[in-house]
């Protein structure tokens, strides 16, 4: 709690210093708008920014959910055999190392702008979920593995009672990385795809505001993207704490 208070105090101090600097130095709003103006814009332009915020949040969370299902699912399948893992890993690596911005135009042509957003958020978040799942499933304590063998555990019992719980801390670490990446994926894809109308997300509003040199709105959209990131960070952190509640403190800290 004390840490949280310090963090909040620092953020408030920085914002106050920014406000004071803009006023004292009479910086024009098209160069750097004051936080108070950004907040006013946020309220006044909510009819535009609100739906954009919802759109970006939706794309990010949907992409993340797909990545969790896909990463965990394919990780489970790949962990069943070396052959499958070797077959899947080059594809996963190629997808991971190719910059998303480079793939996005192709995706737009093939599947359209709207679908590209979801696929982009999914693609970047998928890899940490896959590697987390695979690493976790391989991190089973060999002695515990022997114990299950001594008691004649079958494959299903091993998976649910040994491998899955062993993998959870790794999967949760993967989830926290994947959450941040899904937002990056969604924002980058919006920049490239430039979806307009009701579907327009925060990134599109930023591009639009920059063309119009509408700095207060640009900052307001930026603040909402940061807020989206914070929400996802908090959600994945909460999920991690709930899921790993039974784990020993040392293990949770080590991961």
């Amino acid at each position: 709690m004390r840490n949280a208070r310090v963090s909040i105090a620092i953020v408030i101090m920085l914002v106050a210093a920014w406000e004071a600097a803009v006023r004292d130095l009479a910086i024009p709003e098209w160069k750097l708008p004051a936080p108070s103006l950004v907040f006013d814009t946020l309220v006044n332009d909510w009819s535009v920014l609100g739906p954009a915020f919802a759109a970006t949040l939706q794309v990010t969370l949907a992409g993340l959910a797909l990545a969790i299902i896909g990463g965990v699912g394919i990780g489970l399948i790949a962990s069943r055999s070396r052959l499958l893992e070797n077959a899947i890993s080059p594809i996963a690596v190629i997808l991971q190392v190719t910059p998303l911005v480079a793939i996005a135009p192709l995706l737009i042509i093939y599947i359209g702008a709207q679908a590209t957003l979801y696929v982009a958020a999914f693609l970047v978040a998928f890899f940490p979920m896959l590697t987390g799942t695979l690493a976790g499933l391989r991190a089973v304590d060999p002695a515990l593995s022997d114990l299950f063998a001594v008691y004649g555990a079958n494959a299903t019992q091993r998976l649910w009672r040994l491998e899955a719980p062993s993998a959870l801390p790794f999967m949760m670490a993967g989830l926290r990385t994947a959450g941040g990446l899904a937002l990056i994926g969604a924002v980058v894809a919006e920049f490239v795809a430039g979806t307009v109308g009701d579907q327009a997300g925060l990134a599109y509003r930023i591009v639009e505001a920059s063309y119009r040199l509408n700095m207060p709105r640009l900052f307001a959209a930026l603040a909402l993207i940061a807020l989206t990131g914070v929400i996802i960070y908090a959600l994945t952190g909460l999920a991690s704490r709930i899921v790993l509640a039974r784990w020993s403190e040392q293990r949770a800290m080590a991961d």
């Binding site: 304590d141 002695a143 515990l144 114990l147 719980p165 784990w247 293990r251």
Partner: peptide, 8 residues
């Protein structure tokens, strides 16, 4: 080692 499941 005791080899207990740390989650249980």
């Amino acid at each position: 080692d005791a080899t207990l499941m740390p989650w249980a």
